[in-house]
Amino acid sequence: MVSPRAYGRGKELITLDDVSKRLIRLLIRDELPSSGRVWVDGQDVVRMRRSAVPKLRRRVGVVFQDFKLLPRRTVAENVGFALLVTGHSEEEAREETERALSLVGLAQRRDHFPDQLSGGEQQRAAIARALVSRPKILIADEPTGNLDPVTSWEIIKLLIRVNELGTTLVMATHNAEIVNALRRRVVHLDRGMVVRDEREGLYAA
């Protein structure tokens, strides 16, 4: 298994090729490695006490490929949910939700339900939910996987803005065009092994 190191301190944008659903689950300790160590933000995730896991997950926002939005809740409720269930007050949740929604440009769609949104809007909603607890690290799994090229670029621009605002961004993608255009750090994984790690990498070696 991999012993990946996620760098929490810099404003790097790490792009992971290949694999990665597994890797993301390791990073938020949704799964434990059969061997090896996982470090996130200076913390050993594998040896961490079970009771410390919720705090880890509040510092690592994840945008899942299938979004995981609750269909019977509005966009604002979906975003605020992440705060309410981690013990924040409703006022706090409301304020932070508005902030996150305007950051992703979804403020005017706040009262719509997920199935009334386009794919790109759902993606934005998922990003807003991942950001609402002000995580240090944002992980996006195939953020452009189901989107048309124009919408994909809008999402990538949004993620770069989040990165520029000081959140470490880890993105898993197969999109060569985007990787090549960004010229950021690329870690290439193949069958669970790091085969390449370049500071300003391209998609193909």
Binding site: I28, D30, R50, S51, V53, P54, K55, L56, R57, R58, V62, F64, K68, L70, F81, A82, V85, T86, G87, R129, S133
Partner: peptide
């Protein structure tokens, strides 16, 4: 179960769930 999954992923404590 969907709600519970998300609660856990965003860092709700076991007792909160």
């Amino acid at each position: 179960r969907d709600e519970i999954e998300i609660m856990k992923l965003v860092g709700a404590t076991d007792w909160f769930v």
